[in-house]
Design a protein around this nucleic acid. Structure first.
Lengths: 121, 121
DNA sequence: GCCATAGTTCCGAAATTCCGAACTATGGGA
DNA sequence: TCCCATAGTTCGGAATTTCGGAACTATGGC
């Protein structure tokens, strides 16, 4: 578990990035990490809006982001510091992350059913 | 089956687009439709590289692309014409499609015609 | 040593994807 | 009209993936 796997930037595949960010929760987690520059996963990321993400799911989300090449994780004492690999990814896939983050952000103002209408749960 | 469902552009969600294009096969199909402007699905899209995509899978891929808002499908006689909704999607999510297609194209292995860069507009 | 905190792994249930077989829809003859 | 060929969809079951609770591991403080 310790030598957390981070793909080299040249091994990062577009489909992995798209798959990772196709989940709104993961996209929100990634946006949070980017916004803060460096964030501890559990304490700062475990809530999205008013919804709480279970630990095991959060751990898995962070793993998916890491193995997609989007973030770098490092253990600091008892907690994990995650930072985005924006610059590397931007160099490899210019404009990709910005376009994705902007796409999500542009939907934010007019989300009629993203969070509220969870009729089934 | 007739009234094929196409979401209005304002109902198109980023996660649906990312999910649709996170599959390299679907991304290749979409790239093919864009490249040709207007393509009949079965005859022109059923092969990706040297791999043949089963009819039922292809039908499903096209459906996913359509319901994500990426293409518009119309029946013409016995065949289906698919055209990309690039302009609409570009207006709603600027730069998103170009960045994704370019990301795949720079990855070289995943799309059949990697050296043909699509519309960097 | 013990305990608390932060995160991971395990594993079963639920959801999703894949694709062959059967089916439907349309056009072209005879 | 009936029959056939072509283009695509739907059905159904197996394989895969995702979700999340419970148990576990790792680190630091006492």
């Amino acid at each position: 578990m310790r030598p957390l796997f981070h793909p080299a930037i040249e091994d990062v595949r577009p489909e992995a990035i798209l798959h990772a960010l196709a989940d709104p929760d993961r996209a929100a987690i990634f946006a949070g990490i980017m916004r803060a520059g460096c964030v501890e996963a559990c304490s700062a990321l475990s809530a999205i809006g008013d919804r709480v993400i279970p630990k095991s799911s959060l751990s898995n989300h962070v793993k998916v982001l890491r193995e997609a090449g989007l973030i770098r994780s490092e253990r600091h004492g008892v907690e994990m510091r995650n930072q985005s690999r924006w610059a590397e990814v931007e160099a490899r896939f210019p404009g990709l992350l910005a376009a994705i983050i902007n796409a999500y952000a542009s939907g934010l103002g007019t989300t009629p059913r993203a969070d509220e209408t969870i009729a089934s749960s």
